[in-house]
């Protein structure tokens, strides 16, 4: 039993090391650097409860007397707060570690939701064609033309005014994931549909149909695995976009509440203080946000170059 699993993992490792993706990865310093940066962000935010010197979600741990202390190295710095404190006296380093986690979680889960809806719609539209296809793709076109940000702002605004801020605070993460997830599904649907149109005429699909498999099985077990590379490429972009959208919503005050801030909410928090010279409340979360998104985008660019057969030929 144990030797079996060893062998499988061994062969997986070998396959990975032999793959063109890995080959290109170790020869591309930008991709490696972005992956390293991204990994360090994910790790540090996942370990935030142990790494962070304070718990920013626990109101007993911060004191208004500590508010607006500048970061280490400037006048009036306090040794306890490496990156200074915000207007509520929270340690910036801790809030950023926790906030990065929230941003990443929202980005990833919103993308998973988009993929779940979009892939199903795209598979159905591409495979069955006809009226269903026209109808679904028209809806996708229309929804895309309204832009995610607009749709999300409207839904969240209406939601917040109907249920009140208290309820919103408790369920903010889930609601934002839901809104961004639902608003962006057409991206996946279009990509998957285009792939299915290319794949469904191939012989392996005919073969599967001839041996009597149902459409669900053919779609999910035979066609879907062959659409993975474009899906992977758009997924990176989608995660980055979801994080940006969440940041924008939080910046407008429609996203994460001040008590559990994401990076966008932190920037909103700090924005009113840049005029009085407290630049660090805005600057540190802003840098983290930009570097996070940039590393995901650079990885996505690299992946597209590696996995896109059209570019391969050129």
């Amino acid at each position: 039993m144990s030797s079996d699993t060893l062998e499988i993992s061994g062969s997986f490792r070998k396959r990975l090391l032999d793959s063109p993706v890995y080959y290109s990865f170790v020869r591309n310093p930008t991709a490696m650097a972005s992956a390293a940066v991204l990994a360090s962000f994910i790790l540090s935010s996942a370990l935030a409860p142990w790494l962070a010197p304070f718990d920013p979600w626990d109101q007993t741990q911060f004191d208004i007397m500590d508010s607006e202390i500048p970061p280490a190295g400037s006048d009036g710095a306090d040794g306890r707060f490496l990156l200074g404190t915000d207007a509520m006296g929270r340690d910036m380093l801790s809030t950023i570690l926790y906030g990065t986690g929230i941003s990443i979680v929202i980005g990833v889960f919103a993308t998973i939701l988009q993929a779940a809806i979009g892939v199903t719609v795209g598979l159905a539209a591409g495979y069955f064609g006809g009226r269903l296809d026209s109808f679904l793709m028209r809806i996708a076109d229309i929804q895309l033309s309204f832009t995610t940000l607009m749709v999300a702002i409207i839904i969240l605004a209406v939601f917040q005014t109907t249920v009140g801020p208290r309820f919103h605070e408790d369920f903010a993460v889930m609601i934002i994931i839901l809104v961004i997830g639902v608003a962006e599904w057409p991206q996946y649907a279009r990509t998957v549909r285009a792939c299915v149109l290319g794949e469904k005429k191939k012989e392996y699909v005919d073969a599967a149909r001839v041996i009597g498999l149902g459409p669900t099985r053919i779609l999910y077990r035979h066609i879907l695995p062959n659409t993975f590379s474009p899906l992977l490429v758009i997924s990176t972009v989608q995660v980055a976009n979801a994080i940006i959208t969440e940041a924008a919503l939080s910046f407008l005050g429609l996203g994460m509440p001040v008590t559990k801030p994401s990076l966008g909410a932190l920037i909103r928090n700090g924005f009113e203080f840049i005029f009085s010279g407290a630049w660090w409340i805005t600057a540190f979360p802003a840098v983290v946000l930009v570097v996070l998104i940039l590393s995901i985008n650079l990885l996505g660019d690299w992946l597209r170059d590696v996995l896109n057969p059209r570019l391969y030929e050129k």
Partner: peptide, 14 residues
């Protein structure tokens, strides 16, 4: 690509 990665409100604040 850097431009795409900077949210519009950050550009504005900067």
């Amino acid at each position: 690509i850097v431009g795409i990665s900077i949210p519009v409100f950050l550009t504005a604040i900067f």
